[in-house]
Computed example of a mutant assay.
Amino acid sequence: MSADETTAPIDMTRTTAPEVPIFREYVERSLAAVAREPDLAGTMLRHRFHGSARDKQVAANWLGRRLGAVPNPARLLMTGGTQNTLMILFSHLAPQGTAIATEKLTYAAIGQLATLGRISVLPVDIDEDGLREDSLEAVCKAHKVGAVYINPTGHNPTTSIMSIERRRRVADVARKYTVPIIEDDVHGHITEDAPPPLASIAPDLTWYLMSVSKCMGIGLRTAYLIAPSEDGLADLLRPIPSVSSWFVPGLSAAVITHLIESGAACEIAGQISSEIAARQDIAQQMLGHLGLMRTHRSSLHVWIDLPPPWTIEAFIQAAAGKSVTLRHPRVFATSGTDIKGHIRASLIAPSTHEGLRRGLRVIADLLAGRA
Rank of each mutant, 00 (worst) to 15 (best):
F315K: 01
F315G: 00
F315Q: 01
F315Y: 10
I316Y: 11
I316G: 03
I316T: 08
Q317T: 12
Q317I: 02
Q317V: 04
A318S: 12
A318R: 14
A319D: 09
A319Y: 08
A319M: 08
A319N: 06
A319T: 09
A320E: 15
A320H: 12
A320Q: 13
G321V: 01
G321L: 02
G321D: 08
G321Q: 04
G321Y: 03
G321F: 07
G321C: 06
G321T: 02
G321P: 02
K322A: 10
K322I: 00
K322T: 00
K322P: 00
K322L: 13
S323R: 14
S323K: 12
S323W: 07
S323V: 00
S323G: 00
V324H: 03
V324L: 10
V324F: 02
V324W: 04
V324Q: 06
V324N: 08
V324E: 09
V324A: 06
V324C: 11
V324I: 11
T325K: 14
T325N: 13
T325M: 12
T325E: 11
L326N: 05
L326P: 00
L326R: 02
L326W: 07
R327Y: 04
R327S: 09
R327I: 03
R327L: 11
R327D: 09
R327H: 07
R327G: 01
H328I: 02
H328F: 07
H328D: 14
H328C: 05
H328T: 02
H328V: 01
P329A: 05
P329M: 07
P329T: 04
P329D: 09
P329L: 07
R330M: 07
R330Q: 12
R330S: 15
V331K: 15
V331G: 05
V331Q: 14
F332Q: 03
F332E: 08
F332Y: 15
F332P: 01
A333F: 06
A333Y: 08
A333I: 03
A333Q: 09
T334K: 14
T334W: 01
T334G: 12
T334E: 14
T334I: 12
T334H: 13
T334P: 01
T334L: 15
S335L: 11
G336L: 04
G336I: 06
T337N: 11
T337G: 06
T337L: 11
D338Q: 14
D338W: 10
D338C: 11
D338K: 11
D338G: 00
I339P: 10
I339D: 10
I339Q: 11
I339W: 08
I339E: 15
I339A: 10
I339F: 10
I339M: 14
K340A: 13
K340V: 07
K340L: 10
G341S: 15
G341A: 13
G341C: 12
H342K: 15
H342P: 01
H342S: 13
H342T: 09
H342E: 08
I343R: 03
I343P: 02
I343W: 03
R344A: 14
R344G: 05
R344C: 15
R344H: 07
R344T: 15
R344I: 06
A345W: 06
A345S: 05
A345M: 00
A345P: 01
A345D: 02
S346V: 05
S346L: 05
S346D: 06
S346A: 12
S346Q: 06
S346E: 08
L347G: 04
L347S: 08
L347D: 09
L347Q: 11
L347I: 03
L347K: 08
I348C: 10
I348E: 06
I348W: 01
A349Q: 09
A349R: 03
A349S: 15
